[in-house]
């Protein structure tokens, strides 16, 4: 039996395997990040941090449906000051930790990145693409090529860490956003954020279930769209892509990697398969590779392209 190599080098971050905990799932505390790492994730991402504390939207904020999940959490987070306390001594996690940073304007992003700069994060991710939080992401116009360029440039100037820009699947010209991020000095593209927003209505109550009424769509429903986005972005930029959207099995992860992703984010999959989904996905990838004579995961990145 030949040895299967799942390791990847993502912007000079060594990952033992390509699975990454996506932002917004389980990333509230250092203890949970550590547990996710112990369950096989190659890297983990914290829940997004803003300058000031936020309570987010009222419940229900997360709801499952037949083909995935709908969420409008509304960036609840303790703010940069408390986050800096929670995520001190990050080496305890024993896996690379990515900081997700959000802001209502350019200056907020800069302040949060500065506030976290003394900590041992391995990269900064900026989601300019949330579809359901007023003042942030798409609802603040951050999903245009120009805004993406400006915010990314501002962060590029103040940190040496790799900067990942997370893009929305909603935008037809997604490649121009990815290109703007690359031009501004981003080191990788995270594709994609949740899509929509979408809605679920309880017909007996005759009301939308989420308190914010609408929420980002993730899970199975998102997967084919995320794949297409990654496939397109792979052709448009030279920097690596972290593929996220509906991955819950090894086959899904391999699809994403063949579309052009160097690493894969997993979020909603935790609901389907538990915290050890990372381990399961890696085992399933290894098994397929074994059966198909692929020794090195890096050799099939972008394999679906002509």
């Amino acid at each position: 039996m030949s040895r299967i190599d799942l390791s990847v080098n993502l912007c000079n971050i060594q990952l033992t395997n390509p699975t990454i905990l996506a932002s917004g799932i389980l990333g509230t505390t250092k203890a949970l990040l550590k547990r996710v790492g112990e369950n096989g994730a190659g890297a983990v991402t914290i829940k997004s941090i803003s300058r000031e504390p936020r309570e987010g939207h009222k419940n229900p904020t997360v709801i499952a449906f037949e083909a995935g999940m709908l969420n409008a959490v509304g960036y609840s987070n303790p703010g940069v000051e408390a986050a800096a306390r929670e995520f001190a001594n990050l080496e305890d996690v024993r896996k690379p930790v990515i900081a997700s940073v959000v802001g209502t304007q350019k200056d907020d992003f800069v302040r949060v990145v500065e506030g976290l700069s003394a900590l041992k994060f391995s990269a900064i991710e900026i989601p300019l693409s949330c579809p359901h939080t007023p003042g942030f992401g798409l609802l603040a116009g951050q999903g245009t090529p120009q805004a993406t360029f400006e915010i990314t440039s501002a962060i590029r100037r103040i940190t040496r860490l790799p900067v990942f820009v997370k893009v929305s699947p909603n935008i037809p010209e997604i490649c121009s956003i990815a290109k703007a991020a690359e031009d501004a000095g981003a080191d990788a593209i995270t594709a994609v954020n949740s899509m929509g927003p979408g809605m679920c209505i309880n017909i007996e109550a005759r009301k939308p279930i989420l308190s914010f009424k609408v929420g980002g769509v993730t899970g199975d429903a998102l997967r084919p769209i995320a794949l297409r986005c990654v496939y397109d972005i792979y052709k448009a930029v030279k920097i690596p892509i972290i593929g996220v959207g509906g991955i819950s099995t090894g086959r899904h992860a391999l699809e994403m990697i063949m579309a052009g992703a160097s690493a894969v984010g997993i979020g909603t999959g935790v609901y389907y398969r538990g915290i050890d989904i990372f381990q399961k996905v890696c085992e399933e990838m290894s098994q397929w590779m074994q059966e198909n004579g692929v020794n090195n995961i890096k050799s099939i990145i972008g394999a679906a392209h002509d």
Partner: peptide, 17 residues
């Protein structure tokens, strides 16, 4: 609690949900 089913991380207690 928020989600109630183990994904949002709100109810963490030392790494346990």
């Amino acid at each position: 609690m928020k989600c109630g089913f183990g994904v949002c991380g709100q109810c963490d207690c030392s790494g346990k949900l």
